Simulated scan of single mutants.
Amino acid sequence: MAKNEVKTTVVADGLRYRSKVAGSPFTAAGSFGAATMSCFLCGKHRPRASLKTRKLLGKAQAVCAPSCRELDAANGQG
């Protein structure tokens, strides 16, 4: 007995869906190195190339490089 294929459809109000799209918006289609991670300090998702590791609270954490403010200014976000 075969299952019916469920198509992903968004309801007109945009808030509900019949089935969820697989995957995550933060993964890259290509290699693992092109994926994003969130900055430990500001919480924004950035490409891994624009993050550096820094020891915070006794553990190595990924943070924006050179800083969160400088990246936002360079990207025109304020």
Rank of each mutant, 00 (worst) to 15 (best):
T8Y: 10
G14H: 05
A35L: 01
L41K: 06
T36D: 05
A2S: 11
F40G: 00
F40W: 15
A35M: 08
C64T: 01
S31R: 09
H45P: 02
S31L: 09
A73N: 11
N4F: 08
N75G: 05
C42N: 03
G33V: 07
C64P: 00
S19I: 12
G23M: 11
A2V: 12
T8H: 15
L15T: 05
N4P: 02
R48P: 00
Q61D: 04
S67N: 13
R54Y: 06
G43I: 03
R54E: 15
S67L: 06
G30Y: 02
A29S: 11
A35T: 02
K3L: 10
V6N: 08
T27V: 13
F26Y: 13
S19T: 12
A28P: 02
K44E: 13
G23N: 13
S50P: 01
H45R: 12
L57R: 12
T9S: 08
T8A: 14
L41N: 05
L15K: 14
A28D: 13
A35F: 01
K44W: 06
C64K: 00
G30N: 11
G58W: 06
N4S: 10
K20G: 06
L51N: 00
E5A: 14
S19N: 10
G30F: 02
F26L: 11
G76K: 04
F26G: 02
G23W: 11
C42Y: 00
S38Q: 03
D13W: 04
A28Y: 09
G30P: 01
C68A: 12
R69H: 07
L56D: 07
G78Q: 10
T53H: 11
G33R: 11
T36N: 08
V21I: 15
Y17H: 10
V21K: 15
P66L: 04
R18S: 07
R18A: 04
R48A: 08
A65M: 03
L41R: 04
L51F: 06
K55F: 05
G78C: 03
Q61L: 05
A22T: 11
R18Y: 04
T8R: 09
A34S: 15
R46N: 00
Q61M: 15
K7R: 14
R16T: 09
P47Q: 03
C68V: 06
L56S: 08
Q61P: 00
N4G: 09
K20W: 10
E5Q: 12
A65R: 02
A2W: 05
A73I: 11
V21T: 13
V6P: 01
M1L: 08
D72L: 15
G58A: 07
D13M: 03
